[in-house]
Write a protein that binds this DNA or RNA. Structure first.
Lengths: 252, 252
DNA sequence: GCGATAAATTGATCTGCGTCAATGCACGCG
DNA sequence: CGCGTGCATTGACGCAGATCAATTTATCGC
């Protein structure tokens, strides 16, 4: 535990379940998102101040309004982020996967809630540890800014979707972005080849993400099935038969 | 022009209309937003690499999809930021005022357009200048991250509004946030006192911001008038007669 | 494999907001 | 001062998507 190869200065004692540098090297998020900004040498420092925690499917680990004690980086699994109104209406603001960070806060309390969609492994930093990481690695803070700017671009696209797109366009936009997530155009042997993947969220989650009802999401899926653009082997497993047609329906 | 008091190293020659350090000191945004992160001594550096530019009302100065050559900080006036679909549907993602920054980009092209709502003065940095500012003042980059995180919180609130609020709740939310902008609770003699201010945007802009039509915005305003919660001296000048009632209608 | 349970789908109906159209109102200009 | 132009408001009507309800399908424990 103590023999991490590259410790510049002591910050805190190693928490009991802290990952070793080895663990960081093997981490699913090693070359995605934030950690990609660090060299193999520097990654050891991170291992000193990070705690590895896991969450069972369904577990809520960030509560809107509670003190923002921790900062997280997703190592494995999928997470649902949302805001709620007092009467229970819910808006899911994003589905986060491996390499995404969560929990930065200026106000001192979380502005959103987060739940595990499936079994999730997280890299956890407490507030003070995070500050020491920033102090030691300005590259991390710069990378974080870069990521935040990118999140902002995605948020603006989602506002366009929620404010101005039709139900069918919303569903098509969702399918399109998840097709891209699972099979980037650059990686596809033929750009128009069908792609099959699993959706970690249910129809209600999808509705709360797209500003619709579960019924309307289902009807839109059915229409796309009827038109031969997609197919479902089961409600979780979607086959995008005509990715380019779906992309054309997103309206930008 | 050349005798700015605090130059650490030469970066570029001074552009012809660069503000002097004096100008930075007198700037409307000196103690708002980004520049607030700098000391009086350090602000001179900024003056070396910044250009002061002004835009007439209605002028578009950022075009979605064009190369992100510049970064802006608003010194005076109001700006409308939006994204569009190919068929002309528009979503305004924000109305920015003094001290707001605009134009950070990761991809190299702007993800949104921006127009002056009234006569606007901007502090402009080109890409390379901005990088030199970051290198010289890590505090600016840290502050930028803080601001970006805050923007993200606001964006998530807007997604909640667009996805899940009724027309009346959307309009009330807008009035509430602009009441807060013009007369923060902390500054008000009595928290429930009426507040009057000017709206720099028209009903169509408002509709494109709230995901509604101008007619629905107008009808919602009329209902709030009928209920005695607001009044209009003219379509631009709103009096919020019962700020606490309006706040209660935003539903969070 | 077989029932129990929850989720997804489909159908019927309703409604909030959009659409279309007319009127009101303010400001600028000859 | 009156007229024209553009925005805001108000009214009448229609429809996309919500709501309510029934049916089908997937999953899981036994």
């Amino acid at each position: 535990m103590r023999d991490v190869p590259y410790v510049r200065r002591p910050i805190t004692t190693n928490p009991p379940n802290s990952p070793t540098a080895r663990q960081c090297h093997d981490c699913g998020a090693r070359h995605i998102g934030l950690c990609d900004a660090l060299s193999d040498d520097d990654i050891g420092f991170l291992a000193r101040v990070a705690q590895s925690v896991s969450m069972p499917a369904g577990k809520s680990f960030i509560e809107e309004g509670s003190p923002s004690a921790y900062f997280y980086d997703i190592n494995l699994g999928d997470v649902r982020v949302h805001k709620s109104l007092p009467d229970g209406r819910r808006q899911i603001t994003g589905f986060m996967g491996i390499g995404h960070f969560l929990g930065l806060s200026v106000s001192g309390t979380y502005a959103f809630s987060a739940e595990a969609l499936n079994d999730v492994q997280l890299c956890r930093f407490d507030r003070s540890s995070l500050l020491s990481v920033f102090a030691e690695f300005p590259a991390i803070e710069a990378k974080l800014l870069e990521v935040a700017v990118h999140e902002m671009v995605i948020a603006q696209e989602q506002m366009l979707l929620l404010g101005r797109k039709t139900a069918l366009e919303r569903v098509a936009s969702f399918i399109d972005s998840w097709t891209e997530r699972h099979a980037p155009l650059s990686n596809r042997p033929r750009s128009y080849a069908p792609v099959t993947f699993l959706l970690p969220m249910n129809r209600t989650d999808l509705a709360d993400y797209l500003g619709l009802t579960p019924e309307t999401v289902s009807r839109s899926f059915s229409q796309l099935k009827r038109d031969g653009l997609i197919n479902f082997n089961n409600p979780q497993e979607i086959s995008v038969l005509q990715p380019h047609h779906i992309a054309a329906m997103t309206c930008g």
